[in-house]
Design a protein around this nucleic acid. Structure first.
Lengths: 115, 115
DNA sequence: CAGAATCCTCATAGATACTG
DNA sequence: CAGTATCTATGAGGATTCTG
């Protein structure tokens, strides 16, 4: 896999980051935890500010790392579906914690200075 | 703050990432959750593969985002201490979830192919 | 529709040297 | 000790084009 982090002296957080540190990976995983099945075009809609190229790259990495799997339906035009693998589902607590923090922040910051 | 993510349609995960997505931020936070107080040189020891410049930058961002605060002791030579703010501590569940995932992975992968 | 391939640009991160 | 300044290179990532 990617191997960005050195895991100096066994920092467990670095191990986790090896899998989800891609700029958009955790966001994509989050959407997959919510919707269960997403097509390539769905990701484009969910992440309008992200280029096609980036989405494809992140999906490919997630697939290579076995967090997600894709199914190709050889129709015309082609249709593909992405879903979490069992391994990918083990990240649920991590993504949930991130989502919950964000929800809490949104509550507090309602209509405030940020952004 | 940084404002890397667009938060297209209120994805809470993106909100969280605004704060901890820096390449080494979550690792640094993890160490601070463990040790409570760290000096600049401590971070260098914890992250031997990361350049001084990077550590300084990430610390500065975390400080700007109010996740950590630094105390300068104007001795000779100077000494500084970093610790989590109350706001920074609210990330505990996120960092903990990441750490726990990494610990679980290490158990399963003991002496295996990875790395 | 779902990508891969190409090109090009700007930001990130390393190395090194300097400072209070 | 704890940084900042500068200089450079690597590569991330956008725009565009092409294909099954």
């Amino acid at each position: 896999m990617a191997k960005i982090y050195d895991c100096a002296e066994g920092c467990p957080v670095e191990t986790t980051l090896q899998f989800i540190s891609g700029k958009w990976k955790s966001v994509m995983l989050y959407h997959l935890f919510n919707e269960h099945v997403l097509r390539f075009s769905d990701f484009q809609k969910k992440l309008p500010s992200v280029s096609k190229r980036m989405i494809a790259k992140q999906l490919a990495e997630l697939e290579a790392d076995q967090l997600i799997e894709k199914t190709i339906y050889p129709e015309v035009p082609v249709r593909t579906e992405y879903r979490l693998t069992e391994f990918g589902k083990t990240f649920a607590p991590v993504i949930r914690a991130m989502a919950e923090w964000g929800e809490g922040y949104a509550e507090v910051e309602t209509g405030s200075q940020n952004k």
